[in-house]
Design a protein around this nucleic acid. Structure first.
Length: 434
DNA sequence: TCTGGGGTCCTAGGACCC
DNA sequence: TCTGGGGTCCTAGGACCC
C-alpha cells in the first residue's frame, strides 16, 4: 500500500478516475524554526506556550516526539518529558510566509488547490487530456520542491479527499502513501473510526456504545441507524466510511469570523482586570478586521471560568462595524450578563462574525447623503459624519504604530495597570522569547 | 503547576411573520 | 376564540480540526 520508492514502477499501473492529493507539512512550525536556526537541527524543539502560564504544545519536532511530546499537550507535561527541549513561542508571520511559498508551488501544478489550514492542502490532479502526468509523479515532484524550501511534507494519494487525507497520516514524515483506485474498501475497513476526519472523542464514544469500532463496522451498519443518532453528520460519516465521498476541491474560501482570546496565568476576579482584558482582545480584533477590510454585524464574548466551564454571549449590531471603540462599551455591557465581580476568569475571548461580502467595499455615509434627508434626519447624523474622518485617521495612525512596534506599543490605561500587577517570572528554558 | 488559540459547522429553542 | 404550520433570524452551546 505504501510506496516510497522513487523508481518509475508506478507507470505500470495507470490511474483510473479521480486523483486527489493531500499535502501535509511535517511538524511544520518546528521545522521552520529548525530551518531558520541551524543550531536547532537534530534537537528537540517545541513551539508552544510557557509551561508556567497554562501553555500547551503547538508543534513538537520529531526529535521531541521521541520523548512522547505531542501537539495540544500541556507545556508543563512536555517539559517534564523532555527537559532539554528548546522552546519558542513561535513566529506566525514567518510560518504564514513559508506556507504561502509552498502553496504557490502547489498552484504551480494545478489551480485546483484547496488550502485547509496553514500546513495542509488538497489538490485535484486527475489525469485529463490537459494533465497527462501520473498523480504519483506529481506527488514526488511536489515533495522534492518543498524540500528545496527547507521543510518536508507527507502526501496521501487517493480517489477522494477522505482517502487522501487518511493516507497522508499513515506514513510521516516524508511519506508518500498511495491508495489505488478500487482498493478503497480494503484500505478503510480495518481502520478505527477516529481515522475519519470529523470523528472526535465524543462521536467515538457514542459509536463504541453502539458496538462500532472500525470503519468497516460503521460502513455496514444501516445508514438510518447512524442518522438517527448523529443527524446530518451521521449521513456524511456513513457515506465516507463506505468510500463514497465525492466532494470536490473548493477553491473559494471567505473568512467567516475573526476572534482573539487569551488565557491568564492566574484567574482574574476584578472588574478592572476583566474589562482591561476584554479591551485588549477587542483592539486586536478591530485591527485585524480593518486589515482584512471586514466589518461584522455580530459581536461575541466568551468567558471561561476558573472551573473551565464556558459561557458566551453575542449581540447583533445595527450596522457593520470594525472599530473597537464602538464595540468595547457593548462588550462591557455583555460581560455583566454572564459574569460578576469575584468569579474567577480563566479566559476571555472577543469575536466578530456576520460579514456581508457585498458590504466589503461599502462607502461611508457621505455629506452628499445629507442633502436627500429631512432636516431632522440630517441633524442627527451630522455629528457622526464630522467625527468619522477624525476617528478613521486616528485608527490608521494607531494601527501603523502597532504594526511597527507591536501590540504593546499602545495600551489602554487600565491595561497597563493590570499588566504590571501580573508580570510573571520568565522561564529559563525559553530560548527564544521574541 | 493539566489542558491554548483561531477557526468551521451544526443543533435546538425562541421570537416573529405570514 | 382557538389552533397550525413553515420560514427565517437570532442566540447559546458544543463537537471538531490544526
Amino acid at each position: 500500500m505504501s510506496d516510497t520508492s522513487s523508481n518509475n514502477s508506478f507507470h505500470a499501473i495507470p490511474w483510473v478516475g479521480k486523483a486527489i492529493l493531500l499535502v501535509d507539512l511535517d511538524a511544520f512550525f518546528a521545522s521552520v524554526e529548525q530551518k531558520d536556526h541551524p543550531e536547532w537541527r537534530g534537537k528537540p524543539v517545541i513551539v508552544g506556550g510557557d509551561p508556567d502560564k497554562r501553555g500547551v504544545v503547538s508543534t513538537a519536532s520529531y526529535e521531541a516526539r521521541k520523548y512522547g511530546v505531542h501537539s495540544a499537550m500541556p507545556s508543563s507535561q512536555a517539559q517534564r518529558l523532555c527537559p532539554d527541549a528548546i522552546w519558542t513561542h513561535g513566529h506566525f508571520d514567518r510560518y504564514r510566509e513559508m506556507s504561502n511559498a509552498i502553496m504557490d508551488i502547489l498552484r504551480d501544478e494545478t489551480p485546483y488547490v484547496q488550502q485547509v489550514s496553514i500546513d495542509e492542502a488538497f489538490m485535484d490532479v486527475t489525469p485529463t487530456k490537459v494533465n497527462t502526468e501520473h498523480p504519483i509523479q506529481i506527488a514526488l515532484r511536489i515533495q522534492k520542491r518543498v524540500e528545496e524550501l527547507g521543510v518536508t511534507c507527507s502526501i496521501g494519494v487517493g480517489t477522494s479527499k477522505t482517502i487522501a487525507k487518511i493516507a497522508s497520516d499513515m506514513d510521516k514524515p516524508r511519506g508518500l502513501t498511495i491508495v489505488y483506485p478500487g482498493t478503497e474498501q480494503d484500505f478503510l475497513t480495518p481502520l478505527p473510526v477516529r481515522a475519519l476526519s470529523g470523528i472526535g472523542p465524543a462521536v467515538e464514544t457514542k459509536l463504541k456504545q453502539m458496538g462500532i469500532v472500525t470503519l468497516g463496522e460503521l460502513a455496514k451498519t444501516p445508514r438510518f441507524e447512524i442518522e438517527r443518532v448523529f443527524g446530518k453528520a451521521g449521513t456524511v460519516m456513513h457515506i465516507r466510511a463506505n468510500g463514497g465521498d465525492d466532494s470536490g476541491i473548493e477553491i473559494e474560501d471567505s473568512i467567516k469570523s475573526v476572534s482573539n482570546e487569551t488565557s491568564f496565568a492566574q484567574d482574574l476576579t476584578e472588574t478592572k482586570q476583566v474589562e482591561a482584558a476584554i479591551a485588549s482582545m477587542a483592539v486586536k480584533v478591530g485591527r485585524r478586521l480593518r486589515r482584512k477590510q471586514l466589518k461584522g454585524t455580530t459581536l461575541s464574548l466568551r468567558i471561561r471560568y476558573g472551573d473551565r466551564t464556558v459561557r458566551s454571549i453575542q449581540t447583533t449590531l445595527n450596522k457593520p462595524c470594525d472599530d473597537e471603540l464602538e464595540f468595547i462599551p457593548k462588550l462591557y455591557k455583555m460581560v455583566r450578563e454572564i459574569w460578576h465581580e469575584g468569579m474567577p476568569v480563566r479566559l476571555v475571548g472577543v469575536g466578530m462574525t456576520g460579514f456581508d461580502e457585498s458590504e466589503k467595499h461599502e462607502e461611508q455615509l457621505s455629506l452628499f447623503d445629507l442633502e436627500t434627508m429631512t432636516d431632522e434626519e440630517s441633524e442627527s447624523f451630522k455629528p457622526i459624519i464630522s467625527e468619522a474622518p477624525k476617528r478613521k485617521q486616528l485608527l490608521q495612525a494607531t494601527d501603523s504604530i502597532r504594526d511597527k512596534f507591536g501590540d504593546d506599543a499602545l495600551q489602554f490605561g487600565s491595561e497597563v495597570r493590570s499588566r504590571t500587577n501580573t508580570t510573571g517570572s520568565s522561564s529559563k528554558n525559553v530560548a527564544d522569547y521574541k
